[in-house]
């Protein structure tokens, strides 16, 4: 079997990971020791399919304007600029299935992290300088900006309890992950598997 390598190395204090194989990806579903409550959960979702779609009218096709994001079934679709859309497929088929060549598959190129839980905003405020909760706008929000010198994309899911996803180039994945760990020092941060993330999402998002 062809194995895949994760871009992010987990520190040993995270616990002993339990992995499932998903399309060749070693996906940490949970850690052996029970995790319990945490201030902020940090979950590696880098195995999820991702793409950039570029075509005239693609933003209007998805009914998005720059800076906005929305759910389209299992996928988050965001608009960074006119004629561009970003797709983060959080729960569909693991093999990317993009309709045509206007899509460029970025699954391999971007690391994707979930940051969620009561202290998630405090964590993001240590990573990002841009306002992630503008007063005048309550929908999911897409922001392209820098974090500690790394170019990142962030979606504020605008879930009931705070939740974000953050993406950056694979070659900076470990750097971003470590920046998250530093930012979470005082926030009771836990590294979790995907079970906790999807559990939280199912509870909080619908």
């Amino acid at each position: 079997m062809i194995t895949r390598a994760r871009a992010v190395q987990l520190p040993s204090w995270a616990g002993k990971p339990v992995e499932a194989e998903l399309g060749g990806w070693p996906v940490v579903t949970h850690f052996e020791a029970a995790t319990g409550a945490c201030g902020v959960g940090l979950t590696d979702l880098s195995h999820r399919p991702k793409a950039i779609a570029q075509a005239q009218g693609i933003d209007t096709h998805f009914a998005l304007t720059p800076g906005r994001a929305k759910w389209d079934g299992q996928s988050l679709i965001a608009c960074p600029k006119p004629a561009h859309a970003i797709i983060f497929d959080l729960n569909g088929a693991i093999e990317p299935q993009w309709p045509d060549s206007t899509y460029t598959d970025m699954t391999e190129g971007w690391v994707l992290l979930g940051i969620w839980g009561p202290e998630a905003l405090g964590m993001m405020q240590r990573l990002i300088t841009v306002d992630l909760e503008p007063r005048t706008f309550n929908e999911p929000l897409y922001v392209a900006t820098g974090s500690h010198g790394i170019r990142v994309q962030v979606i504020n899911l605008r879930t009931q309890s705070p939740g974000f996803i953050i993406a950056c180039a694979r070659s900076h994945g470990q750097n971003l992950f470590e920046a998250c760990l530093r930012a979470g020092t005082q926030l009771n941060l836990k590294i979790t598997g995907t079970d906790d993330f999807y559990g939280w999402l199912a509870n909080d998002c619908k």
């Binding site: 500690h148 694979r170 750097n175």
Partner: peptide
Amino acid sequence: VGYHDHPQVSPLYHT
């Protein structure tokens, strides 16, 4: 605090 000088890492680095 806000500044870090991060090197990029190749997918083949650990290998």
